[in-house]
């Protein structure tokens, strides 16, 4: 029997899709190669040439040299990103539960508010926030940025979790009510455990965004010892001459946590992305 013929559409699709994948991967490879080579060699031969010396000097330099201090930025970013993920997750899930299960006055108005906040640019908030944090003594403090990220994240997480909660069967919660559980108990012991997939999705996205944030940090953190990783990486660039070895090493370090998170939680990650955009968990 003759083998089934490969349809041209299949061949073309594979070729095109993999070409796109190759082009899309290329900058990462370039960045990685540049970061592991002495910069003079990269300039002379190009990073695509595999021959020559390899080194981790760039990484050590950006991490340890106080001028760059990426280790400090890394630490600050973690200090900001972890609470800024967990706090809004709980607060927004609570609000989302109210939207999904209770009827109350101003329900639609508050829901519109959440949708509007999701669309508003960060630029619209920073001027009054700058003076508010100054008055509270939280300017140039990580806690100030944590509060802002947490509040900012509530809107989209509440939107996302509300949509998830409305899809949960309400009988299980009703059973718990009849069994004598209070609403806080039902929320903490029944609803949240049933929502772990959605919570993981929201957490993955929120962490990535807080980690990636640059604008809030740029406005609210200015002492070198308080800067987060995105600020530190941009600072490596310098004014005139760019040392691509150092800059690429810094860039790679800055993307390691979100990439690790993505690798670990890929399914939830994509789900969160779709949920954020379309509202469907």
């Amino acid at each position: 029997m003759p083998r089934p013929r490969l349809r041209p559409a299949v061949v073309v699709s594979n070729l095109l899709a993999w070409s796109v994948a190759a082009v899309w991967l290329l900058p990462f490879i370039g960045l990685f190669m540049t970061s592991t080579r002495p910069f003079e060699e990269v300039v002379i031969r190009g990073w695509w040439s595999p021959w020559g010396n390899y080194t981790i000097r760039n990484y050590i330099e950006v991490l340890a040299n106080p001028q760059y201090d990426l280790a400090g930025g890394f630490r600050n970013s973690l200090i900001v990103a972890i609470p800024s993920t967990l706090a809004p997750l709980l607060v927004a899930a609570m609000a989302a539960y109210a939207f999904a299960r209770f009827s109350f006055v101003m329900r639609n108005l508050l829901f519109v508010l959440i949708l509007v906040v999701m669309a508003i640019p960060q630029q619209t908030m920073v001027i009054p926030l700058f003076f508010l944090l100054k008055d509270l003594g939280l300017l140039d403090k990580l806690l100030g940025v944590i509060l802002i990220h947490s509040s900012w994240g509530i809107a989209w997480i509440a939107f996302f979790m509300r949509n998830y909660f409305t899809m949960l069967p309400s009988e299980v919660e009703e059973a718990a009510r009849v069994d004598g559980a209070s609403y806080p108990t039902i929320f903490l012991r029944i609803v949240l455990p049933m929502s772990i997939p959605a919570l993981a999705a929201a957490a993955a996205i929120q962490f990535t965004w807080v980690w990636a944030d640059f604008f809030f940090a740029l406005i609210f953190l200015y002492s070198p010892e308080n800067m987060v990783i995105t600020q530190k990486v941009v600072a490596i660039k310098g004014q005139y001459q760019i040392d691509w070895g150092l800059l690429s090493a810094g860039s790679i370090l800055a993307m390691i946590p979100p990439i690790l998170l993505y690798a670990a939680l890929q399914k939830y990650y994509l789900r969160g992305m779709v949920g954020w955009a379309t509202g469907k968990g």
């Binding site: 069967p169 009988e171 299980v172 009703e174 059973a175 718990a176 029944i190 455990p193 049933m194 772990i196």
Partner: peptide, 8 residues
């Protein structure tokens, strides 16, 4: 009707 057991 669908038992509504706590799945977790």
């Amino acid at each position: 009707q669908n038992y509504a057991l706590y799945p977790n």
